[in-house]
Design a protein around this nucleic acid. Structure first.
Lengths: 262, 262
DNA sequence: CGTTTCATTGATTAGTCTCAACGAAGGTGG
DNA sequence: CCACCTTCGTTGAGACTAATCAATGAAACG
């Protein structure tokens, strides 16, 4: 059976039939992940109504655009993406990456408009929520509201760490931190098989994440590869030695606590 | 009458008498600010019970420490502070500044522990909340819960912009952005008199915010001063030409929307 | 009046950027 | 099926930005 494809138009038109869903909430692919918290039955029932459909995005697709005032609220079900901002003259900064279990578009839902964009790095499947039901969620499911606040707080925590990295770590430390960070995040949602992981990145993405030029990024990655920490493949990065990355970056790693998702 | 001073011990002991408060919630000094949203009567009643006391912190005091697992939840009533993280070897990155109306300590309340520290730049007065009543707030005051999520989302928005700045702006643009940003934030809470503002910073703080060395920061500030954008005083910075700062930084400024506070 | 903290300046070095050129792989159209 | 084009990664050279080192002055403090 082919993957069902919804473009933004059919999204806007509103897709309410739960029958055609590949991933009904009670069979959410995220619920089996040991690092994610389980939901109560009533919560799942509510979420089934909160969910309005699924979105499949190709690699390279812009899922959310900066400045859009009618942004949707999504949870990532599968795939890799990234959040970024740009300056007028095109300089781009990647702010963070989004992986399965992450909630995106909250800013666009709460504030007037999104202040960043999100693009798919690999094919992604997203769970689409009805933003105008968010107040109902806060009214009737305080635990879910608490979870959303928790998720927002976690994003801030990640950003703090990334900002420390970009501001104060050397290029080599910064690169090592980035790959250790992404490796651990991917691991926590079951994306690492046989202790190996290939990330769907170009060196341009890495450069825009670290705040470096692409040339210097290339030379920095070569150093990490020479030390045996990673291997750069055609259009992606394979992590070889996580411990070495942790050592080089002087980073203590992610907390182990199970976290909520919506 | 002298300002009442509470140290952390008397805080921990719990100060419940509302009679000794300088700033009861129904006379909160923040409520007169036009950029902040008003509360309903029942909300103010609840918040009076949510509040456990007031904390006065001298300049230079560490209000919250990274790693503390019993952090409090505060709203800033007056004064300047900053959030920061450090690497093992002492390199410090200032993540953001805290001004009146800002909620701090949310991470420490939701997660197990704080992942950043907060220090006072000037004398500060903080409103102290009882963290274990936060679930009750989410249960009974969904609008306040929504506000807290909004506030967390705004912090993320600010961090996004700061990260873009540190990652992709030049030293001069970055410095101009920082001062324009702080000027606008201070203005929105009524700290700017006669269109002039002096910020209680040392050049070390600026350096640790911009991700630069202190020497290069000094030279960059000299350039901005030479252009007439600002004046560096003894231990602080006076903004002279906001428009010039906006122009140099290529920044569009803060949104004007009134925002919630707790 | 010594001591500390901050700001300032010049000289040198290290890190990073820009420019430029080229190779490999994959896709496209003739 | 091959020639061409595009994207991505790689490398070297030179220019520029920012860091480090070092020294000094000014003000605040006890």
């Amino acid at each position: 059976m082919a993957t069902r494809r919804l473009d933004n138009n059919s999204l806007a038109a509103g897709m309410t039939s739960t029958a055609t869903r590949q991933f009904p909430c009670d069979k959410c692919p995220l619920q089996g992940l040991s690092h994610l918290q389980k939901h109560e039955k009533e919560e799942i029932a509510f979420l089934s109504g909160f969910k309005t459909g699924e979105l499949v995005a190709d690699a390279g697709t812009t899922v959310l655009v900066e400045g859009a005032n009618s942004a949707h609220l999504f949870t990532v079900l599968s795939g890799w993406g990234f959040r970024y901002k740009t300056l007028e003259d095109g300089r781009r900064q990647i702010l963070n990456y989004v992986l399965p279990g992450d909630l995106i578009g909250l800013q666009g839902t709460l504030m007037k408009e999104m202040s960043h964009s999100i693009e798919a790095l690999s094919p992604m499947i997203l769970c689409v929520f009805q933003r105008d039901k968010l107040p109902a969620l806060f009214r009737n499911f305080p635990n879910l509201a608490y979870d959303i606040t928790w998720i927002a707080s976690r994003e801030e925590q990640m950003l703090d760490e990334i900002l420390l990295s970009v501001g104060r770590r050397t290029a080599l430390e910064r690169a090592a931190y980035l790959f250790a960070f992404l490796f651990q995040r991917a691991q926590s949602v079951g994306m690492v098989k046989n202790n190996k992981l290939t990330m769907p990145l170009t060196q341009q993405h890495v450069a825009d994440t670290l705040g470096l030029s692409i040339v210097h990024t290339n030379k920095t990655l070569k150093k990490l590869a020479a030390r045996g920490a990673l291997r750069w493949l055609d259009r992606g990065c394979e992590i070889v030695d996580e411990d070495l990355l942790l050592e080089v970056s002087k980073w203590q790693g992610l907390p182990e606590t199970p976290r909520p998702y919506i």
